[in-house]
Design a binder for these strands. Structure first.
Lengths: 203, 203
DNA sequence: AGATTTCTGTACTGTAAGGTAAATAACCCT
DNA sequence: AGGGTTATTTACCTTACAGTACAGAAATCT
């Protein structure tokens, strides 16, 4: 799923690549948040003019939502791959260490755009705020489902509280995003991951 | 430390109470963040006009910084009191349960303004962003100092890593702020607090 | 009372915000 | 080559933003 909208074979061809422009937009939203990002910030970073932006992406809000979609489908994303690990403990382990590596990575803004893109925000950002909350809650729901499965498969004790395990993990992951914004290094976050796992039940 | 600036005994008296106006400003910043809050939002909530705001508080940035000071000195603040508890474990316990209660409290915006007031933000908010990062880092430094003391006093093992314990706790507390924004209830956060404590060394 | 000091309300400033109209440019198809 | 279609450029629109000038109002001080 690379091209966002299929390019028609008639008319003047688009002078920019939508995917790379969207990457640039994501980076700005990630660093400045939805309210803190102006259209000038976006057009400058994307290297296009406003009418091109509006023609290609709708408006600021839709551009943000598309940037979030891109964020979650990027190859460096660690969340979904971690869910595939064979045991609940390994799921938690990979997710925590993946987050530690990813969130402190200096090759892009620190933290997680789903956490910090529109946390406290204006009424104009209400829609994107809701969208981000939904993503965070859905992420925890996926974790919970995975841990329920682990109980059924026997690699979590039958009396384990899958919901609380998922929320605990979600809390630490979201906290790591703040830590990364504070300037925490990958190594420091890995130590937090290690501590977090000490509270996690093993088979 | 109630009155922010001492009222002179000459001239027309101020028609509003600075402390309650500051409380109102804090609530708006807390809910909308620095970038998401407009001066109109502020003057409306505070019940004053712009010239009164500027005369009393300087400008938007200084008003925000004063609101943060107020936030940290409020009676319902849980951080500093928790540090006074006799053992490291009890410090962590009170801090986590205090956060669970406070951050999900429906009598004010959810979460923590120090976390969410200016996380990702515009360049105009760079100063307040730095100020908030400093507050968060200082909070963890206080925890670390407290845990070093606990090692000296023998209620933490001598080989405990005070820095990582502090960062782990800070991570969970900051994550709880996000959770509260997600709509997590006090009870749900208390379960997270309970799990967090399982990784915490006892005497 | 009058002078002095400070606050309040209204009206205003310049700038930047998000978004768009209209003309021109570049491509495909016949 | 010319028509159809789509993208780009420039210029503009309305609205909201943070911040202020100024005149009048309410207090104290002498």
């Amino acid at each position: 799923m690379s091209a966002i909208s299929c390019t028609p074979n008639v008319g003047r061809p688009r002078a920019f690549d939508m995917d790379t422009a969207l990457e640039k937009a994501l980076e700005v939203f990630w660093r400045k948040g939805y309210d803190g990002t102006s259209l000038s910030d976006l057009t400058e970073a994307m290297g296009i003019n406003k009418p091109s932006l509006y023609a290609a992406f709708g408006n600021k809000e839709q551009l943000f939502l598309k940037a979030i979609e891109l964020y979650e489908s990027r190859p460096c994303s660690f969340f979904l791959p971690a869910l595939e690990k064979p045991t609940a403990y390994q799921v938690a382990e990979h997710m925590l260490y993946g987050a530690a590596t990813n969130m402190a990575d200096q090759s892009h803004p620190q933290g997680c755009v789903v956490v910090q893109g529109a946390l406290s925000c204006s009424e104009a950002a209400a829609t994107v705020k809701e969208a981000l909350i939904n993503r965070r809650v859905e992420g925890e729901q996926k974790l919970r489902d995975r841990f329920e499965r682990a109980k059924a498969e026997g690699d979590l004790p039958a009396d384990a509280d899958a919901e609380t395990l998922a929320r605990y993990l979600g809390t630490v992951l979201q906290g790591m995003a703040i830590q990364a914004n504070n300037g925490a290094t990958c190594d420091q976050l890995r130590l937090v991951a290690q501590m977090t796992l000490q509270a996690f039940p093993r088979a």
